[in-house]
Structure formats: C-alpha cells, structure tokens
C-alpha cells in the first residue's frame, strides 16, 4: 500500500543518503540524475536532510550537506545509513515490471540478480556476467539502439519491412526509442545510400530489426523532436477503407483498428471505416481474418487483400506438397 506523503518523502530521503556517504562536491544535475528526480526537488530534499541526524540536535550529529551554486557539498561523514538499503518487494516488483516492458521475460537472470540486492535470500551472487550474458538478442538490440541514441552514434541495421520477405540494410541515426500499443519502435533518420538515394525520417518496429551494428559515424538529433509517441499516422488525413466484419468478430476496437469507426447492422455484421497509410498493413490484417472480413471499397485495397491471400495460399499449397 502506498504510504502517506510524509512516509514516501522519507523513503526518498533515506534512499538518497548513500549517495552522500563521501565528502566532496557534486553537481545537483548529476545527483538528480542518480536519484531520478529534478534539481529543485533534490535541493529541497538535501536541505531537509541537512536538518536530520542520529540523535540530539547537535550540529555535529546532523547530515553534513549543504547546497551551493548548483552543487551539493558533503563536508563530513554520515551519522548512519551510508550503505544502500535493500529493495522492498514493491521496489523489486517495479524494477522487474519495467524490465519486462523492455522485453525481458519474467524471472529473467537480471531481474533475479536485482532481486538479490533486495536481501530476500533467493540469490547469493549479485555479480554480473561480464558480457551481459542472459540478455536475448532482441533485448540486446534494444540496448544497442538505446546506447546509440544516447551517444548520438549512427548504426547499421537490417530491417524487414511489413509484408516483405527479405531484409534490407540501412544506416540510421537513432533519435529515440518509444513504446506504443505494445510494440517498441525506433524513430530515426535513414541515411541515403546507393540503394536508397533519398534519406528521410523513419519509424522502425524493433521486432522487424534483425541486427544492429554501431558505426563510427555520429549525428546531432533534431532539437524539435516531438514528444508524441504514437506510431500510428494521424487517421484524419488518411484515406479510409470500408470493411464488413461478420457478426462474431471479436477484436473490433479502436486499439486493433486505430482511428476506425464501427457501425453494427441489423443482421449483426459490423461495417467499419478504417484509415490506412498503405495497403500492406490493411491487406494483411484483413487477409488474416480468413474470411470473416471483406473489403467493399476501395478497389485497390480489395485487390491488395486478394493478392496477399493468393500469395499466402500458393505458399501454403507448396508446403502441402
């Protein structure tokens, strides 16, 4: 259960103490980054800590810290609690949930080692394998791209576009990773090369990236990178296809069909108007309904659906032998 505001702030202050265990001057910016807060909150927390101590209100027994010129100055030993305190079960849960969102499976080796610092006795060794062994290939790619984005380092990626069977190579400037509608994406600048004479801004699904190789090239990210993190294009500016779904179709919601409108007919079928940026996505979505959805218009989307289904059907027949 979440504690009172006072208890929550005390918890934050106690977690901050080990970062003040060595005398010296540290920038508020660095310390705020370590404690995952902003500089103003940190400065207020440090001031509060400077009034705390292990006993009588003797200045000698107080936390020896003050804030000056954008720095935290520690001028003495901590009276107590200079070592990091174990993670509580709730903190362990928060950490493992965050890691799972990045693709680590529940109960991963890393999550278990982090739980080890919770002091729950489940994990004896809390040392890392030197090469980070235990991370899956997809998580490694996430890490590499995050590192490239952070260091402004260009990367060579292999990418399989939606609806195609072969991967292509592109050099990209990774600007930002973002997680939207259950999928990780990379917003990047794709650099022009011999095969792609025009460079441009691209959004790549991470699960369609086959490999990532950092290069020696560097870049400056745009200063006006938007904060919005939805991969779906604005439905208001897209053409719409009309699709009739059979009465027992289950996933007729905005999430599965972004920007769509649905109207149920008297016979139970549902008529949807679905925005689409290109026929690849919508054709495959409709073909995957295996006959419970029919595009009534426009003709090019109908043809794209027929083409996807015919190709898949031919492949299935070939596998049949």
């Amino acid at each position: 259960m979440p504690g009172s505001p006072s208890a929550e702030r005390a918890r934050r202050l106690l977690a901050l103490l080990p970062h003040l265990s060595r005398p010296g001057r540290r920038s508020l910016r660095d310390l705020a980054a370590l404690s995952n807060t902003d500089e103003a909150t940190l400065a207020a927390d440090l001031t509060a800590l400077s009034l705390c101590g292990a006993g009588d209100p003797d200045p000698e027994d107080l936390v020896a810290v003050y804030v000056e010129d954008g720095s935290a100055v520690v001028f003495g030993e901590l009276p107590a609690l200079g070592r990091p305190v174990r993670l509580t079960p709730a903190e362990s849960r928060a950490l493992s949930t965050a890691l799972e969102a990045c693709g680590l499976p529940p109960g991963s080796e890393l999550a278990r080692r982090l739980a080890g610092i919770a002091g729950d006795g489940e994990t004896e060794a809390a040392s890392a394998p030197a090469d980070g062994a235990g991370l899956s290939d997809s998580v490694r790619m996430h890490v590499l791209l995050a590192a490239c984005a952070s260091a402004h380092r260009a990367a060579l990626v292999t990418y399989t576009r939606l609806g195609t069977a072969t991967a292509e190579e592109r050099t990209v400037h990774p600007w930002r990773l973002f997680f939207s509608r259950g999928t990780w994406y990379l917003r990047a600048w794709a650099v022009a090369d011999e095969e792609h004479p025009i460079g441009g801004e691209r959004t790549l699904r991470l699960d369609r990236i086959g490999s990532v190789t950092p290069t020696s090239g560097t870049f400056e990210p745009p200063v006006d990178l938007p904060d919005e993190i939805d991969a779906a294009p604005d439905p208001d500016v897209l053409p719409r296809a009309e699709i009739v779904f059979s009465r027992d179709t289950l996933d007729l919601d905005e999430r599965s069909w972004p920007g769509s409108t649905f109207v149920r007919s008297e016979d139970g079928t549902v008529v949807a108007h679905v925005p689409y940026a290109g026929t690849r996505w919508i054709a495959r979505k409709v073909a995957a309904k295996l006959g419970s959805a029919v595009v009534t218009a426009p003709a090019d989307v109908r043809e794209a659906v027929r083409s996807v289904a015919a190709d898949e059907s031919a492949r299935a027949a070939a596998v049949d032998g």
Partner: peptide, 16 residues
C-alpha cells in the same frame, strides 16, 4: 506505469 514511485526509489538504490 503503475509503480513509478517505487521504481524511482529502486533505481536510486541500485545506483547506490
């Protein structure tokens, strides 16, 4: 994300 307050403290502890 439902556990932001706990995550913030957890990361501070891990960093330490």
């Amino acid at each position: 994300f439902p556990f932001a307050a706990d995550l913030r403290i957890a990361l501070t502890k891990v960093a330490a």
